[in-house]
Design a protein around this nucleic acid. Structure first.
Length: 260
DNA sequence: ATGTCGATACTTTATCGA
């Protein structure tokens, strides 16, 4: 089962690129972030024509996540527990059955957190605490679990083109990395790091300052695997060529192949 | 590098978020 994650930066602006990539890669499950659309305006038609079920958890203008799946959804749960007053659409969870068992998949759009001297950074850190608590509860079930999405976290200096350029950014600050390490320490495997130690494998290049042409990228889109999912991992790849397409997202798809 | 996008609104050019 091919499971991908992709921050598409606006579904209405990206539907043609998304359809092109679905035809090329033929993934079974796709976790989308930053759909920037309410549910009723999500252009599901062209995706459904390719054989996908579509589940969305959107909001007006910003944020918003979705999951596409060729198999039906056994369960669908929007919202990250832990703060009933949080109105930002950043989390959608599904259970999907394959030929050899079921997998729980979450589409995660973790807060960016910049500028760090505003309320945005404590919101990010609190959101990460909620994710840690929720993930810990799921791990106790000892089931295949994939937490996929835009984490807005650069885990290590080797995951960005210039550590000094990102040192004071919400994506790389020590408090951010400390919470990411806490999450990983619960027992997760970073899928890409399970297949390669290679540095410079990026998932995001800014639109500004010729970042793509200069390969000034960062790795912030991750698929974290529970032990039961990691046991079934066959492959993980980034798809950097998609960043060179016409009218691209600033992020690229990252996918795993699980024996499920 | 004030460098670029996408969505929104008392819109046609600004703002915000990333």
């Amino acid at each position: 089962m091919i499971i991908a994650t992709w921050n598409i930066n606006g579904i209405k602006a990206r539907i043609e690129v998304l359809v092109a990539w679905l035809k090329e890669a033929n993934p079974d499950v796709v976790c989308l972030q930053e759909i920037k659309s309410v549910d009723e305006n999500f252009p599901a038609g062209p995706i459904e024509e390719l054989g996908y079920n579509v589940a969305t958890h959107g909001q007006k203008g910003f944020n918003g996540v979705a999951i596409l799946s060729k198999r039906p959804f056994d369960e669908l749960t929007p919202r990250l527990p832990g703060d009933d007053g949080d109105e930002q659409a950043r989390y959608l969870e599904a259970v999907i059955s394959g030929d050899e068992g079921a997998v729980r998949v979450a589409s995660i759009y973790l807060p960016n957190g910049n500028p760090v001297d505003t309320e945005k950074y404590p919101y990010k850190l609190a959101w990460m605490e909620r994710l840690i608590a929720h993930a810990q509860n799921h791990l106790e079930q000892e089931e295949p679990l994939v937490l996929a999405g835009d984490y807005n976290v650069i885990p290590q200096d080797g995951d960005c083109y210039s550590a000094s350029a990102w040192a004071d950014d919400a994506l790389a600050l020590p408090q951010t990395r400390e919470r990411f390490r806490t999450l990983m320490g619960l027992g997760f495997t970073d899928a890409l790091r399970a297949v390669t130690p290679e540095e410079g494998l990026y998932t995001f290049w800014d639109y500004q300052a010729g970042a793509w042409q200069r390969n000034n990228g960062i790795r912030i889109d991750h698929l974290l695997l529970s032990p039961q999912a990691a046991d079934r991992l066959k492959q993980c790849e980034t798809t950097s060529h998609v960043r060179g397409w016409e009218k691209p997202s600033d992020h690229i798809p990252v996918w795993i192949d699980l024996a499920i």
